[in-house]
Design a protein around this nucleic acid. Sequence first.
RNA 1: GGGGGAGUGCCCGAGUGGUUAAAGGGGACUGGCUGUAAACCAGUUGGCUAUGCCUACGCAGGUUCGAAUCCUGCCUCCCCCA
Length: 395
Amino acid sequence: MRHEQSSGQAMLDLTRNAVEVLPEGLLDQQLKGDRLLRVKLGIDPTTSDIHLGHTVVLEKLREFQEAGHTVVLIVGDFTAQVGDPSGRSTQRPLPSAEEIAANASTYQEQAFKVLDRERTEVRFNSEWLRMEPEVLLGLLAQTTVARLLERDDFQKRLSANAPIAALELLYPLLQGYDSVAVKADVEIGGTDQKFNLLFGRDIQSAYGQKPQSILTMPILVGIDGTQKMSKSLDNYVGVTDPAEEMFGRLMSIPDEAMPEYYRLLLGAELPSGAPNEAKRELGRRIADRYHGAGAGEDAEHRFNQIHVFKGVPDDVEEIDLHPYSANGKQVHMPLLIARVFGESSSEARRLIEQGAVKIDGEALPADAWDLEPEALFGKVVQVGKRRFKRIKPDG
RNA sequence: GGGGGAGUGCCCGAGUGGUUAAAGGGGACUGGCUGUAAACCAGUUGGCUAUGCCUACGCAGGUUCGAAUCCUGCCUCCCCCA
């Protein structure tokens, strides 16, 4: 069931954008064989969203699927309780069991926005990692502390006198055991995963399996253009974000980050020409990818309404004024803003003082704390550039 | 087991008895400008229907007219020696 395309051709495609493919020549050899490969990716459900950073790796997996291989997606519901030290200078805050369960349940769905369901095997690693103590001891016997401490992350912490939790030490052993459990031929991850991925090879050997080959992908920089994309830094674009949110967030990436976004997300070179148009194109294509053709244009239209024409978008949620104008009394604006836009009343006051609150486009004077309800009927209340609510015409 | 050090606002971090809601930076937010939710410039950044009141410098007490700053106990964390 191997296809026509030569493996030389396959290599070209499958290693595109990869940073490292190790050990030298192994993947090539595997692809030349007639067995379809089991390609592993582990994602710990430590946060609720899969973002574009993850999709760099997911897209690579999809390429393997397109070449006929099977993807084994491991939802790290167990390893999430341990905390991957990769790329961290402090211990990862561990999510609660409830959070992990909640995140794990949405992960597959999100991953399938990129992956082909038919060629994906989803496994939760608690299935095999919730093991007998004897088995765990057997696993621990496979390595030394020196090996576990070798990783760059720990070396940095040691020289900075920063703590390393004993739990973190176990991480690569567990991830490696995942490879054993699913009999991985190839494991893919970000460059920050190199140590873990290589460690998996040792564990597989120790359990009498052929060690996997590893392929690392570049880490996508966040929309701040400086740090890696991550939920905790809030510099990410989630695959489940609304189209206009995706578009807007992508418009906010620094121009310098564009070549990388083009290369890693679109698989293309940054077009020459107006940077603004290139950025818009990026936004449209990503929005289309996750929300269907046309979503990008709609998002762009909304973006133009708000940011270019400084107008009001078409679809503004209507709210009831009654809770704020009992018996036709004056409406206390700080309270209204606070409740309707989810701010504290102190923050709402500051926003009014800063001229950030507009009624039908007119900035509310800094001292206009109270308004007659009639002055608000049917009007659009705007906070900052991009938050809008319309008051119902009859209040 | 012994010794040393640290816990400050979203984060980092100054402050070691008195205009301290707490320097500075980062982030975030707002305004200006702009092709942009970029860059740049400026401002804001505990809460409360609020010219005042409340809460806040790990926790609990205490000293004092007055404490993040001093004392006591407790908790947590880090480092070094063994």
